[in-house]
């Protein structure tokens, strides 16, 4: 057997300098210094310790990472934090007002719109975006416009019922919602 040879060391390339990124998260301005490849999701969870926003697939397929940026729902896993510099981000932690839950949170509890709860923050942020968009009026339209949020427990009928209820309440709009 040939003696093992030490493989040549790969050239060490110094990592790019961290980028300053300022985000207003749930009403509080935060400045971070991040590697360019830090997604908004990782910035929220790892750097700001806002772990309410979940990492499901990390590929934009499940919707667990849904947050509102300037009032519009997006997948936080498919954007870089640096790309959102200067914007207002609302996560599930930012939907409550003091000790009061957001009408969507109340409705999800009332309708038992979850089992394991992992997709729930994304479902609720997505529903807040849907209500702000104002395009859904029927249950079918709610289903269609919520199709970017998967629930592997299959709580869909209750999720639709909860959103329908919250839509009928003139509740406070999400921070930064149009």
């Amino acid at each position: 057997m040939a003696p093992l040879k030490a493989s040549p060391r790969p050239a060490v390339v110094p990592p790019p300098a961290p980028i300053p990124v300022t985000l207003t998260v749930n009403g509080v301005e935060r400045t971070l210094h991040l590697a360019p490849w830090t997604t908004l999701l990782d910035a929220l969870r790892l750097h700001l310790e806002l772990t309410g926003t979940k990492k499901g697939c990390d590929h934009g397929q499940c919707g667990a990472c849904t947050v509102l940026v300037d009032g519009r729902r997006i997948n936080a896993c498919l954007t870089l934090a640096a790309m959102q510099d200067g914007r207002k981000v609302t996560t599930i932690e930012g939907l409550t007002t003091g000790d009061s839950l957001h009408p969507l949170q109340d409705a999800f509890i009332e309708h038992d719109a979850f089992q394991c709860g992992y997709c729930t923050p994304g479902q609720i942020c997505s529903a807040a975006g849907l209500i702000a968009e104002g395009k859904a009026t029927t249950d079918d339209e709610i289903r269609e416009l919520m199709s970017g949020n998967l629930c592997r427990c299959g709580a869909y009928p209750n999720i639709v019922a909860a959103i329908r209820q919250a839509m009928t309440i003139a509740g406070p709009k999400a921070e930064g919602a149009p």
Binding site: G60, G63, T66, R72, R73, I74, N75, L78, T79, S126, G129, L130, E133, L145, M146, S147, G148, N149
Partner: peptide, 9 residues
């Protein structure tokens, strides 16, 4: 195509 979140991005 896609989902509401993706179409917003």
């Amino acid at each position: 195509g896609a989902s509401a979140q993706l179409r917003n991005m």
